[in-house]
Simulated scan of single mutants.
Amino acid sequence: MKNFRNNKNKLPVISTASLPDIVFMLLFFFMTVTTIKDNTLLVDNNLPNATEVKKLEKKDRIIEIFVGKPAPELAAVLGSEPKIQLDNKLASVNEVSAYILSELAKKPEAIRNYVTVSLKVDKEVKVGIVSDIKEELRKVNVLKVNYTTYEGDTSINVQ
């Protein structure tokens, strides 16, 4: 009788034969869904803080422009004047409109009117270069401009 009572309290054995299949399925899922960061920053990009912040939802409708002083390894060659980074190269203000047009041509025609230019400007940069970039954007009729910031206390921005 004693043997029958011990068998009732034991849990059935769970088969782990399908566990490797599940692990590989998850691995392939994350490999296909994950995107790799495609821009290497050539300029310093310490963004200012702001209190009223809204996240841009649709990443396929954003064209990014980085503005800042050259990174420390490039500063010896290029100096300390603020530079504009378009994709993975440094450019002048005159090249912005051609870059925007080429990026718009890559987008599907249905969303070209909804594209936003995201300016990621270092907080040490003077407003003159930003004004020049906005003037170039007006020339190609791209009027939706976003200034990327961090959410936080704005008193940190004033020095």
Rank of each mutant, 00 (worst) to 15 (best):
N113V: 06
M1R: 11
V121E: 05
D132W: 00
D60W: 08
V140Q: 00
S80A: 05
M25F: 11
I129K: 09
K120C: 05
V115D: 14
L104V: 08
P70T: 03
K59G: 06
F28R: 10
S92N: 14
A75S: 13
S18Y: 08
S155E: 12
T149A: 07
D44E: 15
V43T: 06
P82N: 02
L104T: 09
K54W: 01
N39T: 14
K69N: 04
P82K: 02
K107F: 10
Y114N: 15
V125L: 08
R5H: 10
I84K: 02
T148C: 02
S131A: 14
V115F: 09
T35V: 11
L56M: 10
V33G: 10
T148M: 04
D153M: 11
P108C: 11
I156G: 08
Q159K: 13
I14S: 03
F30Q: 12
I156Q: 15
V130T: 15
K123D: 12
N39K: 13
Y99E: 13
P70Q: 04
S18T: 11
A110S: 15
M31Y: 11
V96T: 05
K83D: 01
K123P: 01
N46C: 06
S80I: 00
V145W: 02
T34H: 07
N6M: 10
I156M: 10
K8C: 09
V117P: 00
K69I: 03
N45W: 03
A71G: 00
K10F: 09
N94Y: 07
L104I: 09
Y147W: 03
T149L: 04
I62T: 04
I14H: 04
A105Q: 14
I156H: 11
N49A: 02
I36H: 09
T51I: 04
E124S: 13
F28A: 15
F30E: 13
N3R: 11
I63P: 00
I22E: 15
V121D: 05
D87T: 08
L41I: 06
S15N: 14
E109C: 03
V121G: 03
T148D: 13
N146D: 13
A71R: 00
E81A: 04
K69W: 02
I63W: 00
